[in-house]
Amino acid sequence: MDRLDYFVLSELLRDPRLSFSTIAKKLGVSALTVRNRYEKMKSEGIIFGCVVSIDLSKLGYQGKAFLMITTSPNCKKSETIEFVKKITDVIVVSEIIGFFDILAIAPVRDIKNIRRIVNEVRDLPGIERVEVTFTDDTSFPVKANYGELFSRRSLNMATA
């Protein structure tokens, strides 16, 4: 990663829909250079996705559920995580340290759907307990301010 990579990232993090030529003009390089940097960072897994932002409330969703999953001591967490990832509507899964073992995040359509998700988790082998917290945040996948933190950070690294 060189300065130009961080500059390009900083622009895209601020507004992922910017065209390569707009970024190129601002940074004083060719559009092809910007495209190449973008493709390189994608292939290296540094950029791992560009996701459309959706206001799920417009589609009838009510919020998000955070499933806090406790597994039994002899359970292999990595295997369980792979199973949880397969459950429809689960959009984020992570291993956790501390009060529970696995966190899963799912947008909430209605009570029936959330019950379905929780039951599918409960039915997996090695699950001891599932607790749920709800937010009324219907932004998908994350809130609009998410990119701002990383954009500033990338700009700092470009100008360091």
Binding site: L9, L12, L13, D15, P16, R17, G45, I46, I47, F48, G49, C50, V51, V52, S53, I54, D55, K58, L59, S139, P141, V142, A144, Y146, G147, F150, S154
Partner: peptide, 13 residues
């Protein structure tokens, strides 16, 4: 209609 509100780029933190 406000269904699509933009986009998010995900970068390895």
């Amino acid at each position: 209609l406000g269904v699509i509100t933009g986009a998010t780029l995900f970068v390895r933190p």
